[in-house]
Structure formats: C-alpha cells, structure tokens
Design a protein around this nucleic acid. Structure first.
Length: 636
RNA sequence: GCCAGCGUAGCUCAGUCGGUAGAGCAACUGAUUUGUAAUCAGUUGGUCGGGGGUUCAAGUCCCUUCGCUGGCUCCA
C-alpha cells in the first residue's frame, strides 16, 4: 500500500496515477504535486506500492518548480504560435523564474517580448490541460525530426535512454521530464524580464541562441514584491550610487575595467584598510610591499606562465619580458626565500594590500565587482603541517569578526580534492581534515563541495549575505603544497633537517574594490558613521549663524570628525535636502536658539529630528559611535 | 570574445514623416537671510560616442568602429 500524506493526515491508496488517487479521495483541489523520496513530482506521477507521498498545494513554495516549468512551456508555446519556424533548446526553471533558449530568426526585443507575453496570457486563459506520455527514443527522434526541432533530437540522442517522456498542452508538445501543473490556467502571475544570448550547451563553439528570462509566482503579491526587489536592487546599484555620491568613476576609454577613486571613495577605502591593518597586527601578521612588475622567469617558475598567461599583462624592456603581477604569492615567496628560515620563525604570516592586474574579457567587466585591476587584502601564512589547523582557526575568527562588523551573515563551503590535482593522498587527506577540524572546532556549519578545490589544495570559501538577501563570495582560505614545492622553499626543523612549509593563501575582503561595491549596495549608500566619507554636515540657518557654525566645525575637525560646513546663502530646507541626498549621517542645524544655549540641533539622515544637544554631548556620542564602528546611529 | 539592446549638455530625459538640437536639475551671476527634503531671475553649456556613406538636407536611414547594459554552469 502506498501512502499519501496531506495536512498531517495519511491516506492509504493503491497504485495508479496520482491525479486520479487525489481526486478519488476528494482532497483539496489546489493540490498540484507531492514529494516522494525527496523528489518533487506532479499529478502525472504513477504511484508505486511502496511510495510515501507528501502532497502539497499550488501555494506551497515547492510548487514553484512546477508552475515555473509550466510557464516556460507556455512561453515556448506562445513563441511557436508567433514564430512558425522557432526551434527550441532547453527551458528549465531557475531560482524565482525560468528561461527558454530558442533559435528564432527575429531578434527578440522588448516589443517582441510584449507580443509573447500577450500570447502567453491567451494560453493561460485557454486553460489547456496538460498531458504526459512517453515514447521510445526512436519514435521521439522521428517526431522531433518531423517537427524540425534539431536541438530536441540532439538532446534525446545524448540522453541515451530507451524511453523518453513528453508533455502536451493544446497543440504544443515538448520533450520534458516534468514536473508540471495540471493545466495552463493554474499559473497566472508572470513577467518576461530580459533576453540574452546563450550558446547552445554553453559552448562558445556552438550557435548562439536567444534566451528569454521570465519570473512567475502563484500569488500576485509575490510577483509584485519580487519585481520590487529587482527595482530596489537597481536603485542600490553601486555603478549608479558610486558616481552619484562622488565615490569613484570609471573611464572606459582610458582604463577599461579599472577604477578611479575620488576623495570620498578613498576615505572609505582607507578606513577599511585602517581597520584591516589594526586587526592584522593584533593577529600577528607582518605587512609587506612587493613590486608590481616582475620578470617573466618568476612567473614561469610559479606556474602562472602555464596556467594563467591568458589573464596576464606583459611589458618589455631591455629585451626582457616582464609581467604585471596578477597575484601576490610569488612576491611573498621571494621575501620568504631571502633568508634561511627556522621552525621557530613559523608560522610566518605575511600580509599585503597588493594591487593586482588581471585581464578579463571585455564582456565580463562590471563596475567594482569585476575589474581588471584590484587590490587584494592578501596574506600568505607559511607554516608547518601541524600548524595548519590553528592557523585556519585564526583566519576564520578574523573573517568572522570582520563580517560581523558589517552585519553580514555568511555561509561556508569546503571544497575538496578535484580530479586533476597535485600531491599525495596523505597530504590531501591531512590538509582536508585540518580544514574540516578547524571548521568543526569553531562550530561553523558548512557545506562540502566534493572535488571543487584548487588543483594545489583544498579550500574554504565564505559567502556573505547582503541586506536584500543576495550572496557574494568574499573570503577564501586555500591550502597550497604546490607553490612551496615549485620554489623549493624550506625551513630548518628542530631535527636540524630541511622541511617544506605549507602555504595558506587567504583574503578577507577579497578585493577591496569589490567589497566597497558590496558595501555600497548593502547600505544603499548610507554608510555607518565610521566609514562615511562625511560624518557631519553643519548647516547654519542664515549668515549671522555662520560664525558660530564655523567654530563648531573647528571643534569637530580637531576631534578628527569628518565635517563639512554649508554656509551658502540658501534656505535651510535646501541645505538639508543636499546633505540628505549625500546620505550624510548627521546634520547639525544652527540658529539663534543653538547659539544661545551652546548646542546643536541634530537631524539624522533617516529624517529623525533629535532636537538640541549640547555640542560636547553630541561630540562624545558620535565619537563613541565611530570608535565602536557602530552599525547604527546613536540617535536611532 | 559572442548575441541582443542602448549611446543626445556634468546628471535625468524629450526630439513626430529626414527639414534651424530642447527641458528639468547641476554649474555660473545677481537678488533673497531663511528653523528640518528644492527661493526667484538671468547666463553658460552640444562635432547628437567616433569615422564613413546615401541625400538638396542626417540626431533621425545604411555601413563601420568604440563604449555601456543584460546574459553566455545550473543539463528534456
């Protein structure tokens, strides 16, 4: 007997199509699918005697898989109706939506998308029932050949199975594994978002198809709030906010993929660096600076010449080829090698805010997120194998502290040995275990990505989650046995013999540029006071208050609070608006009242009016906030 | 790199069928001296991304080139 479970109740049923069983039991008509052994199935599933199926309705989040998939078929059907000779590739569901790769002669622009959307609405209205059936692979190939669908034919051939399943809705038939909704009228709220080129099977050698992305939700409110989230993300786009707040600019004609930091952006950068230096000093790191341009021979020895040449910039002088550094490790190794090292010197934690250049293909550069020149907050820890675990723990706690400072929750992933890797089984096992042990000892939950490590060692990656729920990979810790080997570095052990140290590569911010980009979007440009380029705007109401205002500015300056004075002959409303647009955390408004009482009227950028505070009082409060690197204002 | 879309003043954008390039904001000048998100008036500002072509005439049509945006793993 199979079991169906719904709303906590269990029903014993015989085998058969799930649809019929659910109907016979007269259960909720909103039921669209179920979960069998962790797999999501639709109502066309054939129930086997031993199955235990947990049913869910269309409102369940798990139904997303179904209605988004059906939506992608509805889109394909609409496309087929409009463009008679459209050829279809693949059309899966993705997070929050779906896409379909199609081969159509017409370039699909916004107008075409509208037409497709209209046709989709019709198909939804037609409420066509879906039907699942199977064919032998041979029959299916003949069928799709007759329909002039070469991609489908190719897919079936590659599947290499005897039978394939298909779904039909009205005149449209697609090769599909499912799962799907029972009819096209059961999904309603969708929007086509954009069109992009995508190679057939993701391979650049293949034909480029047109990929249409769409999103779909069961409830109207969910669609709307998703669209709002996209809008919110657009508003926070650091490429817009950055120049608007006068933080940085990019000049593609002069330096494509590289960033010009303006004075205000530079303040943020220096604050991040200052914090970084303090913490690294506390954690026993020594800071170094290595050359930007180094001889090609170094890069041959490091292996970059063989594995990374395509991404490197070169320059030639005096018949010598030099490379602009794409990574800092070889430079650090030169420093390590500059003297004999003893086990007493280890662990040697060498850090550098090292600017590297990497050639990125023109289509992939993106604001601060993907640049051709960026500064890594890099460090290499040279240590013995026995020290690995403790060193990893140290790095983890540095990362944890740093991310908490910005209010970033994070996820951790451990990547293990890939297929084409270097080094002995023992060393891989030992080091992977060291990473695992470190993670477990500090009590972090982590996900394991088998075979996803670098060819020279396993690694731990950290993904931070920003204030609107997007995740970004920032920190990474990588063990490396290869580089010490290639450069033949060693230390003298207590046994007076030479031993090979292990190198740990690690970054915390990752790239300073990218991290600033993430911060801009995370805070929507309203930075906490400690990194705000301007912390206080002093706004005298009229000329006669300017003198007192200047005195206030002077006092704040002496306390190293970053302050501007707006003594333009403008209305106070105007000055407030200006400061607000610049997202300055504190506005001090000064009029007769304040002069009389030796105070300042404090307004926050949130719009909150704190009223008059004694100047000294304000100063001690903001100084504390800055010193604590507080995420929120003392006034909130 | 490839596919699609886009490129008009510092910014946001308008510009019809090919017929003398426009607005708001910003900047500058002047007046206004103001109590919690825009005071008023005036002035300046453009090889319409660059180059070539079609035409009596090109921001507009065609070609080319540069740049930007979205995307190019997520396996029917």
């Amino acid at each position: 007997m199979a079991k169906l479970i719904f709303n906590g109740k269990s029903y014993d049923v015989h085998e058969g199509m799930l649809k019929d069983l659910v109907k016979a039991l007269n259960l909720d008509s909103k039921i669209v699918g179920g979960v069998v052994a962790k797999e999501i199935v639709d109502l066309f599933y054939t129930v086997k005697p031993e199955d235990k199926i947990e049913l869910f309705t269309a409102e369940d989040p798990r139904a997303g898989e179904l209605y988004r998939h059906t939506m992608s078929h509805i889109m394909a059907q609409a496309i087929q109706r409009i463009y008679k000779n459209a050829k279809f590739a693949i059309g899966p569901t993705i997070e929050n939506g779906f896409y379909y790769d199609v081969d159509v002669d017409v370039p699909l622009n916004e107008d075409e998308l509208k037409k497709i959307e209209e046709e989709m609405k019709k198909i939804i209205k037609e409420d066509l029932p879906l039907e699942k059936f199977s064919m032998t692979a041979r029959e299916a190939i003949d069928y799709f050949e007759s329909k002039d669908q070469p991609y489908k034919v190719e897919i079936i051939k590659d599947l290499n199975e005897d039978n394939v399943t298909l779904y039909r809705q009205g005149e449209f038939v697609d090769l599909c594994r499912g799962p799907h909704m029972p009819s096209t009228g059961r999904v309603k709220y969708f929007k086509l978002l954009n069109v992009a080129g995508a190679y057939w099977r993701g391979d650049e050698k293949n034909k480029m198809l047109q990929r249409i992305y769409g999103t779909a939700f069961y409830k109207k409110e969910d669609l709307e709030s998703y669209l709002k989230m996209i809008e919110e993300a657009e508003k926070r786009d650091h490429r817009k906010l950055g120049p608007q707040l006068d933080l940085f600019s990019i000049h593609p004609d002069v330096a494509p993929g590289m960033v010009f930091f303006h004075p205000k952006g530079t303040i943020i950068r220096r604050e991040l660096e200052k914090y970084w230096r303090e913490e690294h000093k506390k954690s026993g790191y020594v800071e170094v600076v290595t050359p930007m341009v180094m001889n090609e021979s170094l890069w041959r020895q490091s292996g970059h010449w063989d594995h990374y040449k395509e991404n490197m910039y070169f320059t030639e002088k005096e018949n010598q080829m030099y490379a602009i550094k794409p990574m800092n490790c070889p430079g650090h190794i030169m420093i390590y090698k500059s003297q004999t090292r003893s086990y007493k010197d280890l662990p040697l934690r060498m850090c550098e805010l090292g600017t590297v250049h990497r050639y990125e293909r023109s289509g992939v550069v993106h604001g601060l997120f993907r640049t051709r020149a960026f500064t890594q907050d890099d460090a290499h820890i040279f240590c013995t194998e026995d020290q690995i675990e403790d060193e990893i723990k140290g790095v983890i706690s540095l990362i944890d502290k740093t991310y908490k400072l910005f209010g970033f929750p994070y996820k951790v992933e451990l990547s293990t040995r890939p297929e084409n890797s270097m080094g002995s089984d023992e060393i891989w096992e030992k080091s992977t275990n060291a990473l695992r042990a470190a993670l477990e000892h500090v009590g972090l939950l982590y996900q394991v990505n088998e075979g996803d490590g670098a060819f020279y060692g396993p690694k731990i990656d950290f993904h931070v989650k920003d204030s609107i729920g997007r995740t970004w990979q920032c920190a990474t810790i990588q063990l490396d046995f290869l580089m010490p080997e290639r450069f033949g570095i060693s230390y003298t052990g207590s046994d007076n013999l030479d031993h090979r140290p292990v190198m740990i590569h690690r970054v915390i911010y990752g790239s300073i540029e990218r991290f600033i980009g993430i911060l801009i979007e995370h805070y929507a440009g309203a930075f906490p006071a400690w990194i705000s380029p301007i912390q206080v705007a002093v706004l005298p109401i009229s000329d006669k208050h300017a003198e007192y205002a200047k005195k206030v500015v002077q006092i704040l300056d002496e306390k190293e609070i970053r302050t501007i004075l707006d003594d333009k002959p403008r209305k106070i409303n105007y000055k407030i608006r200006e400061a607000q647009i610049q997202k300055i955390p504190y506005m001090l408004i000064i009029g007769d009242r304040e002069i009389e009482t030796g105070s300042v009227a404090v307004r926050l950028r949130s719009g909150k009016d704190l009223g008059d505070l004694k100047t000294d009082d304000f100063i001690s409060k903001i100084l504390k906030e800055i010193k604590d690197k507080s995420q929120t204002s003392f006034g909130e």
